[in-house]
Design a protein around this nucleic acid. Structure first.
Lengths: 337, 337
DNA sequence: CTGTTAGCGCTTTCAT
DNA sequence: ATGAAAGCGCTAACAG
């Protein structure tokens, strides 16, 4: 590898002069600048960012720590984050926690030793607090994405789970549904709590009972809803609609329903949080509370960089990006069952 | 930040001893090992991987340079790559070229200065050769993903575009279609050429004419197929089926058809290369040649790491992962149009 | 406008 | 079993 010294020697200048040319810093005569530039090209010189990081104490490395790149929501978040990072001259490390605290912890350790300049994180759950505190203790700025963590203050980009859920459930109620089930994410995750609140709120506001038998908690990535759906279907007074707390859960529910010969929405309406990306373009089927995922990512990175640069101000910023209710054909008035 | 020297001082040993404890190298008495370990914890010491990289001349940083993380194919590739990288103790840099050679070039420059240990790349096109040679010249191993580049030899993970295309088109022919259109990716991309070959081959093998008016070339990310589809529909002898060279193109085509009031497959069959991820789980609609995307990613990273470690052998490896024809309901016998 | 010195945090090499 | 010295490639600080 050719170093700054190789260039310096061949151009008959000091390493410092080369450094100045590279970084456009200090005053350099046009003549030597040209000469140095030429030698750099001849030698195919490429600055070593590790060495640079070591002295500058900044890596220009950001991390996107999400729970599953495979979920269209996070896929789009990633795209937004990537674009923003590139624009600001940062590189992006991709980390998949898989909704798993142990993996998240591994990644946080890794990021610490990487000396990432900042982390954009969708915390796996409330227990992520420990990991976030570790980042804090080591002076690594982070922005929380999509989820809050009790006891943790930081810049945050959030959706409005409660409101979105309320809208979805009121939409169902408006269609005439009275027995609406909720298949929720883990209560360890703030969005799951928010969505349940919105669900409960909507029911109460409309004078409907809360039936705890119609509320089930699962993992956000758990695909198999067979048991739950079965149970509901065997109920004497079975639900006519299901609100799934995220897109994956909704797909699992719909698969189960189909497998049992039920049709959506004729036999059961299904709605959920988060859209399905290309799936919805292909076939606008699912009624959803869609979140502006790209913005989650790009604003997250922007906040992070502002924080890193010290442009952010002392108080934490919390942005709540509202969801958009998109009514499609997976929801309809309750049928004759 | 606490350094190895801080630990050394507090533990009354030299920095070297601490280093040895960290890396489990050399002989250390159990007693000092314990002591050093304890001090490391007390001081919340985390090794600085930049400093380590600088002396070791390896960064444990790999790059995934793909054309769009938003495409379910690459999303799944990314997931496979991520998992494999994590497993081997590497970190993964996410880079989106957007099918754009200029962006790809930017990223390659960035990766060079990052001193990435290796690159897993889906080249944006044949002109990527220049970028790949640049990696080569700088001694950065790379594995090509999904696409070949003429004149470039390296480890490669490929699908079988030709065969998959042939299968799709023969499937259509088998259904009774005689006029089959191809909406292809750019000929600058090897998969587009392969898919066209398979298409032509299938037609010829079945005694059908090749009508160049039924072959159109677009960008793989180009969503708007309106003009093309319109043109085809106005033909006196219009096609009854469309083979889209990738999933995005297929979705664009189907959207256009729907907008014009045509139904798939009743009025027009549509098939394509690459599956749609969650979309196909929700609604198994599109007939596709599905590729094992996760394997593309995980094998790609595995190859890359073997190459980096020098375990790879002198000859280049080229793996061709066969696609699987999945017949669903977007293809049917030609109707009465 | 340009150069010298020192040091970022670590590991290799050679001593002891 | 442990340590001292040197250096990975770069830049800040100071000097001239």
């Amino acid at each position: 590898m050719t170093t700054i010294y190789d260039v310096a020697k061949k151009a008959n200048v000091s390493a410092m002069t080369v450094s100045r040319v590279i970084n456009n810093t200090g005053r350099i005569s046009e003549k030597t600048r040209q000469r140095v530039r030429k030698v750099m090209e001849e030698l195919h010189y490429v600055p070593n960012s590790m060495a640079r990081s070591l002295v500058l104490q900044e890596t220009k490395l950001l991390s996107l720590l999400i729970t599953d790149i495979t979920n269209p929501f996070y896929t789009t978040v990633a795209r937004g984050a990537e674009d923003a990072a590139k624009q600001y001259g940062y590189r992006l490390l991709l980390c998949n926690s898989d909704e798993d605290l142990a993996k998240e912890k591994d990644y946080v350790e890794m990021l610490l030793s990487t000396r990432a300049d900042g982390v954009l994180i969708a915390p796996a759950g409330d227990m992520s607090a420990e990991h976030l505190r570790r980042l804090e203790k080591h002076g690594v700025p982070y922005v929380m994405l999509d989820r809050e963590v009790p006891g943790i203050q930081s810049d945050t980009i959030l959706g409005n789970s409660r409101d979105g859920a309320r809208q979805l459930v009121e939409h169902l109620i408006g269609l005439g549904h009275r027995r609406i089930a909720l298949i929720n994410g883990p209560r360890q995750v703030s969005t799951a709590r928010g969505r349940q609140m919105g669900y409960v709120e909507a029911l109460k506001l409309n004078g409907l009972d809360i039936d705890s038998g119609l509320i089930v908690e699962m993992g956000y990535k758990q695909f198999d809803a067979t048991g739950t759906v079965n149970k509901w279907l065997e109920l004497p007074d079975r639900p006519t609609a299901i609100f799934a707390a995220n897109n994956f859960l909704a797909v699992g529910v719909i698969q189960t329903l189909r497998r049992m010969g039920l049709r959506v929405p004729r036999d059961m309406s299904v709605v959920c949080f988060d859209d399905l990306g290309i799936a919805s373009e292909l076939n606008p089927f699912l009624t959803v509370a869609a979140q502006p995922a790209y913005q989650f990512g790009s604003m997250g990175i922007q906040f992070l960089i502002e924080r890193i640069r010290g442009e952010a101000g002392p108080e934490w910023r919390k942005i709540i990006l509202p969801p958009e209710l998109i009514v499609r054909s997976s929801s309809a008035p309750p049928g004759q069952g």
